[in-house]
Amino acid sequence: MDKKEELLKQQLQELKASYQQELPERLSEIRDLWQKITMNWSRQSLTALCTCLHRISGSAASFGYPELSVSAAKAEQLLKSYDNTDNIPDSNQLQTLTSALQQVFQYPG
């Protein structure tokens, strides 16, 4: 392996380590937003939550968390059906959303 390849490999390892270190905080932010939404449903919080889930779904697989990526994408998709509407999920729908988000929360980072 030449020096450029070695340097690239080292940089990728550093990026992965940084992602792993930041992941618990990102998941905590998602958990906090979900808790806030369940207490007081708001479009602003929902949009913020969808954005966080979108970022996780787009990046997690690249850093070794393919299942997290799939779980975040699923939760985001479920939540998107409430974005840009005034509809609030009923108790059954809320349970479905909570279950989807719990799949995201299970990752320790």
Rank of each mutant, 00 (worst) to 15 (best):
S45N: 15
Q93S: 11
E5Q: 14
T98I: 03
K4N: 06
Q35N: 12
R43T: 13
K3C: 07
Q21A: 11
A48Q: 13
H54W: 12
A17N: 08
R55V: 06
L7E: 09
I30F: 05
F105L: 05
Q103N: 15
Q95H: 08
Q102D: 15
R26M: 08
N40G: 05
A61P: 06
Y107P: 00
K9E: 13
D90N: 14
E67N: 07
S59R: 02
K4L: 15
Q93G: 13
A73C: 04
Q13A: 15
Y107N: 09
E22Y: 10
Y82V: 08
Q103V: 03
S71C: 11
S69V: 03
L101T: 00
L7R: 12
S59Q: 14
N87G: 01
I88E: 05
D90R: 01
L12T: 03
T85L: 00
E29N: 10
T38G: 02
D86L: 07
Q77F: 07
L49P: 06
L97T: 08
L33E: 04
S59K: 06
L49M: 09
S91N: 09
K16M: 04
S91T: 12
E5N: 07
P66A: 03
P66D: 02
G64M: 05
S18D: 09
S71A: 15
L12I: 03
S71D: 14
L8W: 04
Q95Y: 01
L79V: 06
I37D: 06
P24F: 07
K16D: 03
Y82K: 05
S99P: 00
F63L: 09
T85S: 15
R31P: 13
L101I: 02
T96F: 11
L97P: 03
G58S: 04
S69H: 03
S57N: 00
